[in-house]
């Protein structure tokens, strides 16, 4: 596919479904939100150039191993402990068009549920061969892929005995600043998903379902790694630049 087949689409973004789809700012079952949620309503303003534009991320800013978490921190000849997996999918917009050039950054715990971060004091040990971060840029068809290990669940201070399901954090930067998205990916069949206070900040089960990656045997590598498929939808753009055509343009 050539660049001509997948032009970056101009135009302002569709509004976000904040009332019944995205989590509300204040979700008391997730304790950290109580002191950090704005209490005043968000103010709607018209999108202009600052909202519909965004920087370009080029393949040339990537290193060869950036999307290979099995190798991007491991000592020569060694590998991280854990279940080897491929996480892949497509980034589409709400018009079901692939979004090329999306910066996809991920971070995750190791197989024991421990993050490489000085503030994570969980008992599970660090893995000397695993940093837990990766990044890539979607291709012309919106595809991305990572190789990693399946992260372990971990306990966290919220309720008396709350555990996070296995998850991978995703940050996505599409073609516009107002399209920026941070989310988390879960694994189909994990019984901790429905028990998670962070998952349950999302009001609609259909929305939660979008965050659950599916086992994808077709993309697995026999005798090497299972694959999980996680497609992502970013805000779609109108076909016109702005709701009201700018004067003098």
């Amino acid at each position: 596919m050539t660049d001509d087949d997948t032009p970056r689409v101009q135009g302002s973004f569709y509004p976000r479904r904040r009332d019944d789809w995205h989590p509300p700012a204040l979700a008391p079952q997730y304790r950290s939100s109580t002191l950090r949620a704005p209490r005043r309503a968000l103010i709607s303003i018209p999108q202009s150039w600052g909202e519909i534009t965004g920087p370009v991320f080029g393949q040339n800013m990537l290193g060869e191993l950036d999307n290979d978490l099995l190798r991007n921190f491991a000592r020569p000849g060694e590998s991280p402990i854990g279940e080897r997996i491929i996480v892949h999918g497509r980034v589409l917009d709400q018009n079901a068009r692939p979004v090329p050039g999306v910066l996809v950054e991920i971070w995750q715990a190791n197989a024991g549920g421990r993050y490489r971060h000085r503030k994570d004091g969980y008992t599970a040990p660090l893995d000397p061969n695993f940093a837990g971060l990766g990044r890539t840029i979607t291709d012309a068809e919106g595809r991305y892929e990572f190789r990693t290990i399946r992260p372990g669940p971990y306990p966290w201070p919220n309720g008396p005995n709350d555990w996070r399901p296995s998850h991978i954090h995703f940050s996505l930067f599409g073609s516009g600043f107002a399209q920026r998205l941070v989310t988390q990916m879960y694994f189909e069949g994990d019984p901790l998903i429905e028990r998670c206070p962070i998952v349950n900040t999302i009001p609609d089960p259909a929305a939660v379902d979008m965050l659950v990656a599916r086992l994808d045997m077709n993309a697995s590598l026999p005798m090497d790694a299972l694959a999980w498929r996680f497609d992502i939808v970013l805000r779609g753009r109108r076909s016109t630049w702005f709701e009201n055509r700018p004067e003098g343009n």
Binding site: P23, Y115, D120, G134, I198, A207, L211, L234, R235
Partner: peptide, 26 residues
């Protein structure tokens, strides 16, 4: 004809790992 946007989730306490690893010391 329109897909729903993937819902947001909090970045959690460790977003530095994925976005500014050198700053964090990785």
């Amino acid at each position: 004809d329109y897909l729903d946007e993937t819902p947001s989730q909090t970045a959690g306490p460790y977003i530095h790992i994925g976005t500014v690893p050198n700053f964090l010391g990785i």
